[in-house]
Amino acid sequence: MNTAIFVAVVTTIGLVGGLVASIVLASSTRASAFVLGLMVFIWALPPVVNGSVWKFLLGDAGLINGMLGGLGLAESAVPFLYDDRFALLSVALVNSWAVVPFNALVFRAAILNVPGEIFEAARIDGANRWQEIRHMILPAVRPTTLVLVVLTIVYAFRSFDFIYVMTFGGPGIATNTLPFLSYLQAFARYDFGLGAATAVISVLLVLVLAFVYARSVRREEKDT
């Protein structure tokens, strides 16, 4: 169940965030190029580094709590990482933060693939920015979206590094996803049989996703 919530949050935010970021950054101004570079750099950093930073920022006296307190939004520090209610969500949010750059990059390529003349034609016809997004950009990225959905789901599902670094599955079992649970069972409780069984279940789930992915890739290749 944790796994399902986790995957759902990461996939939704990862895809929507990626799409928004790609639309915002599709213009070739210097600012866009810089922000995109920054984002891809974050994506390239080891997850351990990113995880540690967020563990720090989300701590009791960390930047986020400092800001909330300063703005008077929270009376006491919010226990982002060691409260049952927040921990899973916090880790999922950080995970989506880390995957947005990649998705934005792929979406951006799909948007840039639309010839510039089409946008010009639309503008001459009086289309505003929202109409452009709704009727031109969204259809253009649709084929890409399916592939990215599967990739992001798989990414979220097999996510391990952030959980390991930020909460280690805790508090209690609040951030145990299936792959992490199998790891804990095998290497923390030294019950290799149980861990392997959990791993097999997670592998079966991945098989289903891989099948969907393989089919969508095949279809794309047929088009060439």
Binding site: F160, Y183, A186, F187, S202, V206, A210, Y213, V217
Partner: peptide
């Protein structure tokens, strides 16, 4: 080729935690 690609995709998607247990042994 088709079969190999399918297998590779599956392999690529496997959680690392699933392979660390058998590899350790």
């Amino acid at each position: 080729t088709t079969v190999a690609l399918g297998l590779l995709i599956v392999l690529q998607m496997l959680p690392q935690t699933a392979s660390v247990i058998p590899l350790f042994q």
